[in-house]
Amino acid sequence: MKKGWKDLPIGGIIEDAANSRNFETGSWRTFRPIFHEERCINCLLCFIYCPDSAIIVEDGKMKGINYFHCKGCGICAKECPPKANAIEMVREADYAEKES
């Protein structure tokens, strides 16, 4: 339910910083990055090149992809060093079919 003028904070500010974490952009994807942890060398290039802050890193290790935000641009897969090749882009439709 969208707030009316009486309930909005004054002056157009957004008080709840970083609340876009609750906004899904994952539905934009046509391609899905699949992370193969066993091949990962934890160079973290995917992390530093991700436009959507969607690479999950814990204790310096790549742990996966936040699919709620990932738009499937494929930069991570492209920049993943060829010797590792730990991220694979698959068509979302194919992925969905396979999952079902």
């Binding site: 970083a18 876009s20 974490r21 609750n22 906004f23 899904e24 952009t25 934009w28 994807r29 973290l44 992390f47 530093i48 090149y49 991700c50 436009p51 959507d52 802050s53 969607a54 890193v57 310096g60 936040n66 709620f68 935000h69 990932c70 738009k71 499937g72 641009c73 494929g74 930069i75």
Partner: peptide
């Protein structure tokens, strides 16, 4: 070290897929 710092630009923004600006 960079990955251990808090993210300041959070996902869920509406920049295009593959946008250079957010990187």
């Amino acid at each position: 070290e960079l990955a251990s710092r808090p993210e300041r630009l959070i996902g869920g923004h509406r920049l295009c897929a593959g946008c250079g600006a957010s990187i």
